[in-house]
């Protein structure tokens, strides 16, 4: 066999090995839907799922600061052919207390509740709830396993970095907050002033997924 054929044979072995590995990885990927709601007006900067095995993000449709209600998801994002996530990244500005939140929360696969969803072959539906004071709740649903709370955290407020204050141009913290409030409806601004959104969701652990989402 000449050198060219040796190279071709080596390439074939390499491609076959890569194809087998990719088929194996492809079988690990699933489809899941992700939705988000908030109890208070927030400006979502980033919210996505990640997994250490890949660089792909599991996306959400962001919560609208002018239309929000606890337990009401506007729309679920379809994430196709993606790994089961192992962490949730969330960055947002809360209008009610004018503070910034930026955290990455890991989903513990050894946890018995989340572990059941990781192993199931059913389509997963994630619902993220964001409440006042950095309270985060994440539910996972399937038709057979039902809906269960898999993550409940209270995020610490963080000092924004310069890149967090970019809105059309670099802004100071005060300028950024003013700019964010200019995007908000006057009625919501009045409600914030009257402290109408102050409600504690720390112990709220129930979420009922609408039946039609499974179809």
């Amino acid at each position: 066999m000449n050198i060219l054929n040796k190279i071709y044979t080596a390439l074939i072995i390499l491609l076959l090995t890569s194809s087998i590995f990719l088929v194996y990885r492809s079988n690990q990927k699933i489809n899941y839907r992700a939705g988000c709601f908030s109890a208070v007006p927030i400006h979502t900067r980033q919210v996505f799922f990640t997994d250490t095995r890949s660089t792909e993000y599991g996306n959400f449709y962001e919560a609208d600061p002018n239309y929000f209600a606890w337990g009401q998801v506007d729309q679920y994002f379809d994430n196709n052919r993606i790994d089961v996530p192992d962490s949730l990244h969330i960055e947002y500005f809360s209008y009610t207390d004018s503070v910034f939140y930026n955290s990455t929360l890991s989903l513990d696969r050894t946890d018995s509740t989340w572990g059941k969803y990781v192993k199931t072959k059913e389509q997963l539906i994630f619902t993220l709830g964001i409440a006042d004071k950095g309270i985060i709740k994440l539910w996972c649903s399937t038709p057979i396993l039902g809906t269960q709370l898999i993550l409940a955290e209270q995020l610490p407020a963080v000092a924004p970095k310069p890149e967090d204050l970019y809105y059309r141009e670099p802004l100071s913290k005060a300028q950024y907050i003013t700019e964010m409030f200019s995007l908000l409806d006057d009625s919501i601004k009045n409600n914030i002033d009257k402290q109408l959104y102050l409600k504690n969701y720390k112990d709220s652990s129930d979420y009922k997924l609408p039946e039609y989402i499974f179809n």
Partner: peptide, 23 residues
């Protein structure tokens, strides 16, 4: 050798396509 190269090339062209679809 030319004929062997040709068969190996056909195999490579097919595999490259499948690999790209998987990638």
């Amino acid at each position: 050798e030319k004929q062997r190269s040709l068969f190996l090339l056909i195999a490579l062209y097919t595999l490259v396509f499948f690999l790209l679809v998987l990638l």
